[in-house]
């Protein structure tokens, strides 16, 4: 079973995303900021990461840079999922090593399309 780490400071978003991704057969872990997420990745590197941008403690962008510098941190497919919906943010995220980018609000079809795009489904 593929593992997906959902990182978002909103428990509602995490719940919605969990329901969608469990429907696609993923085993889910959750984190509410980048710091917690890095700890989770050190314990076990997931196959997929759904990543919010704006979060307390450590934001999604900082997390992504730290992740890609970790041993084995190049392996997970990272899909940003954020309200930041301008080209400048998208370009910054992609240059930092994101694989895909979802602009909130999202639905099941969008998550499915993006996860298919990076070969996770």
């Amino acid at each position: 079973m593929k593992r997906c780490l959902i990182i978002d400071d909103s428990s509602v978003i995490r719940k919605v995303a969990r329901r969608i991704l469990e429907g696609f057969g993923f085993a889910i872990t959750e984190a509410s900021d980048g710091r917690q997420a890095l700890d989770a990745c050190m314990k076990e590197m997931p196959d997929a990461i759904l990543l919010d941008w704006n979060m307390p403690v450590m934001d999604g962008y900082e997390f992504l840079r730290a992740l890609r510098a970790m041993p084995g941190g190049d392996r997970p497919k990272v899909v940003f999922c954020t309200t930041e919906n301008d080209l400048a943010h998208i370009a910054r995220a992609m240059h930092a090593g994101a694989d895909e980018y979802i602009m909130k609000p999202f639905d099941k079809e969008i998550v499915e399309a993006k996860f298919q795009e990076v070969g996770l489904i």
Binding site: L87, I90, A91, M94, E100, Y101, I102, M103, F106, D107, E109, I110, A113, K114, E117
Partner: peptide, 13 residues
């Protein structure tokens, strides 16, 4: 919504 269904982010950019 329409640009997120099937369009890779690289092509959007």
């Amino acid at each position: 919504f329409e640009v997120q269904r099937g369009l890779p982010i690289s092509m959007l950019m």
